[in-house]
Amino acid sequence: MAASVRAVCAARQRAEAAGASLTLAGVPANTLRNLSIVGLDQVFATDPAAVPHDIHVITASTQRPVHG
């Protein structure tokens, strides 16, 4: 879990440095619980209603959506 938390935190920092935000979409309940335990539920926005076709990633280098 520590590696994945570091990765998500790094992604958030890159997004903020680029003037963007990061929303976690479709996060499983057990992962939300883990985020809550370490206090990251207060750091990350979540969107439980998002479905895969609604998810867009804006890359810092292109500023264009990358559909996932």
Rank of each mutant, 00 (worst) to 15 (best):
M1W: 01
M1L: 01
M1E: 06
A2K: 01
A2E: 10
A3N: 06
S4R: 04
S4T: 05
V5A: 06
V5R: 02
V5E: 06
R6Y: 13
R6S: 13
A7T: 11
A7Y: 11
V8M: 14
V8E: 11
C9Y: 11
C9W: 07
C9D: 13
C9S: 15
A10G: 13
A11P: 04
A11L: 13
A11E: 10
A11G: 13
Q13T: 10
Q13N: 10
R14Y: 05
A15S: 12
A15G: 03
E16K: 04
E16T: 08
A17F: 07
A17Q: 12
A18E: 01
A18R: 00
A18S: 07
A18W: 00
G19V: 06
G19K: 02
A20V: 02
A20S: 12
S21I: 04
L22G: 07
L22R: 01
T23G: 03
T23P: 00
T23K: 03
T23S: 04
L24V: 05
A25V: 09
A25D: 08
A25Q: 03
A25M: 03
G26W: 01
G26F: 01
V27E: 03
V27A: 08
V27P: 02
V27C: 09
P28C: 10
P28I: 03
P28T: 07
P28R: 07
A29G: 02
A29C: 01
A29R: 00
N30C: 11
N30V: 08
T31C: 08
T31K: 02
T31M: 03
L32F: 01
L32I: 00
L32A: 06
L32Y: 00
R33C: 06
N34I: 02
N34F: 04
N34Y: 05
N34D: 10
L35E: 00
S36V: 00
S36Y: 00
S36H: 01
I37V: 12
I37D: 10
V38P: 03
V38W: 00
V38G: 01
L40Y: 08
L40Q: 05
L40I: 00
D41N: 11
D41S: 13
Q42S: 12
Q42V: 06
V43S: 12
F44L: 09
F44T: 05
A45N: 09
A45R: 09
A45P: 04
T46W: 06
T46V: 15
T46L: 09
T46K: 03
D47T: 06
P48I: 02
P48F: 05
P48H: 02
P48M: 04
P48A: 08
A49N: 10
A50R: 01
A50E: 06
V51K: 13
P52D: 10
P52M: 09
H53S: 15
I55C: 15
I55Y: 07
H56W: 15
H56A: 15
V57E: 12
V57I: 12
V57C: 12
V57S: 10
V57F: 11
V57Q: 11
T59Q: 12
A60C: 14
A60F: 13
S61A: 15
S61L: 11
S61K: 09
S61N: 12
T62V: 09
T62Y: 13
Q63P: 05
Q63T: 07
R64H: 14
R64L: 15
R64T: 14
R64M: 14
P65K: 03
P65E: 12
P65Q: 09
V66L: 15
V66W: 15
V66K: 08
V66A: 14
H67W: 14
H67I: 10
H67P: 08
G68P: 14
G68S: 13
G68E: 14
